[in-house]
């Protein structure tokens, strides 16, 4: 009898705790309704645009990796920058025209996220907070990123035709997502290795040095590629001009005037 009473109490306590702590049932119902609609729409888009390589239900095939657990951040980056759907196989899938609307991308992301838990697309507070530290972002960028992307994000070569693309013109959200998910040949920097704040600092640094508004105190940057473009410029425009002027000057002699 005592055991029965204890059991009843325990059940009541569990139920009461659940009732107290569970999320508001009404809101959840509304949300999950929209969510399941997005997933459904996303699946339709997926079956048309993605399944030929990634297989049904994102299981992956020889032509494309499994998408289970990549999360909505990866989808938002890959489709949002036009890399996916891929045009052709190659060393690396390149950025191209975006063919989905942001609403469709969100639906695709919702569908992929429903296949397994993964990093979620960041919010504006995460990728462009007001208090980002540009100088610290610069140090983090030089420590973690510049060995592939060059010191101001102009990009660089990797092995066998792969490359780290230029970061100029990439949106803050996409840069954040790339760090979060590590697309293609890029290593990923999850929050456990690089906290959200650090990612925002890096993005702030890139905005300070690598946008159309960034100041170029020295004049034309020649691509900010380092000494190769400078050397080429010195030979072609520097020495080239001087040689032309030397020829011009040598032609102006007394003999040339007479004839």
């Amino acid at each position: 009898m005592a055991a029965l009473v204890v059991l009843l109490f325990a059940l009541a306590a569990t139920g009461g705790l659940y009732a107290a702590l569970a999320p508001a049932p009404k809101a959840q119902a509304q949300d999950s309704g929209q969510q399941s609609l997005a997933i459904e729409q996303g699946k339709k888009l997926y079956d048309v645009g993605c399944a030929s390589c990634h297989n049904s239900n994102g299981q992956g095939s020889d032509d494309g990796p499994s998408l289970v657990g990549v999360g909505s951040a990866a989808v938002d980056f890959q489709v949002g920058t036009g890399r996916m759907p891929a045009q052709q196989p190659g060393p690396q899938v390149e950025k191209k025209k975006v063919i989905y609307t942001q609403a469709q991308i969100d639906q695709l992301a919702a569908y992929i996220a429903s296949l397994g838990p993964g990093p979620a697309a960041p919010t504006k507070d995460q990728y462009s907070p007001a208090d980002a530290d540009v100088a610290k972002g610069g140090e983090l960028f030089r420590t973690n990123c510049s060995q592939c992307h060059n010191f101001v994000g102009k990009g660089g070569a990797l092995t066998h035709g792969k490359f780290a693309p230029s970061l100029k013109g990439s949106s803050s959200k996409h840069i954040y997502e790339a760090m979060q998910t590590g697309p293609q040949n890029m290593p990923s920097f999850p929050d456990s290795t690089m906290p959200s704040k650090d990612k925002a600092d890096i993005i702030a640094y890139l905005h300070a040095v690598d946008t159309a508004q960034s100041p170029n105190p020295g004049g034309f940057t020649l691509g900010s590629l380092g000494p190769v473009s400078e050397g080429l410029f010195a030979w072609v425009f520097g020495l080239g001009t001087l040689l032309g002027l030397a020829v011009w000057l040598a032609a102006r002699n007394t003999k040339a005037k007479k004839s």
């Binding site: 610069g138 140090e139 030089r142 420590t143 510049s146 060995q147 592939c148 992307h149 060059n150 010191f151 101001v152 102009k154 660089g156 070569a157 780290a164 040095v209 170029n216 105190p217 020295g218 004049g219 034309f220 940057t221 020649l222 900010s224 590629l225 380092g226 000494p227 190769v228 400078e230 410029f233 425009f237």
Partner: peptide, 21 residues
């Protein structure tokens, strides 16, 4: 008119950092 060796873009030297190019 043309920048050469923009050291401000490259940052100070630290042996644990490196840039491509």
């Amino acid at each position: 008119v043309a920048t050469v060796n923009p050291i401000w873009e490259m940052g100070p030297y630290r042996p644990d950092q490196v840039s491509t190019g």
